[in-house]
Amino acid sequence: MNRRLATPLYLLPALAVYGLFVLTPIAESFRLSLFRWPFPSAQPVFCGLRNFADLLRDAVFWKACQHNAALLLMSLAVQLPAAIALAVLLHYPTRGRTLFRTAFFAPMVMPTAAIAVLWQFIYAPEQGLLSRLIALVRPGFAYPWLADPRTTLLWIFVTICWRYIGFHMVLYMAALGAIPEELYEAARLDGAGEWQACRYITLPMLRPMIGISATLSIIGSLKYFDLVYLMAGGVPEESRELMATYIYRLAFDEYQGRFGYGSAAAVMLFVIALLVIVPLQARSRRRSPDNPTGTAP
């Protein structure tokens, strides 16, 4: 078949589904961002760019952006290396590998509701697991893990990383399995030690997967919602919101009903994400001979 005729056929199904179920709602929320809508009790009223003007002065929103950035950094700096390390460790012949792999993956299939309940017990100020463990060395220890505005989000981020490490580990295990054994044999013959093999064979061979996993982390942390919404109620809003939780609270929580304003915040989030993703994409495209997956840094 002629290529010029064929290309649209490859794209058409995706475009149809995507256009109908994703682009239309997005376009609608862009439109609503220009309205004042104390819904559900009233009709939307056009207000031009006023929502955006308000948003620029909204301290909570900008704090929320910073929190997203912190989550992003943390998932790249902690979650990814840990996932790689665990995958490498498990790649050695290991007794009970199935057990390890299943258990590591378990937090990922555990529904968020259960995770939130359990970790609230773990983080309970006095009788929580964490406080009790510390009390073994420092009797009488108590700490408001989820009520200290400076650190609450940090502890929740720890929970988030804990949850996702197993998933990323599975990705890396798959990639490790694809590295030809001969490379390592050749390295051993050349007298390379274990660390060197890791540095010069494993990591470079993992690079495409690192790209994928980093991209998933970046997007995931920009849109993150669940555990923060469920666990961060104990601190003032400027210390607890992520962009997505703030948008939800504006629109739905306790019928705050500022749907137009929430949509405007979503548009901002969208623009910010775009500003992060587009340069990354462009850069990886330029480097494409070097970075064949062209996915992410």
């Binding site: 309970a124 100020p125 006095e126 408001p144 989820l146 009520a147 109620g233 104990g234 601190v235």
Partner: peptide, 12 residues
């Protein structure tokens, strides 16, 4: 009130 009450759920 107990330590850290703002971060504790009503059930606890």
């Amino acid at each position: 009130f107990p330590v850290g009450f703002n971060g504790v759920d009503v059930g606890m």
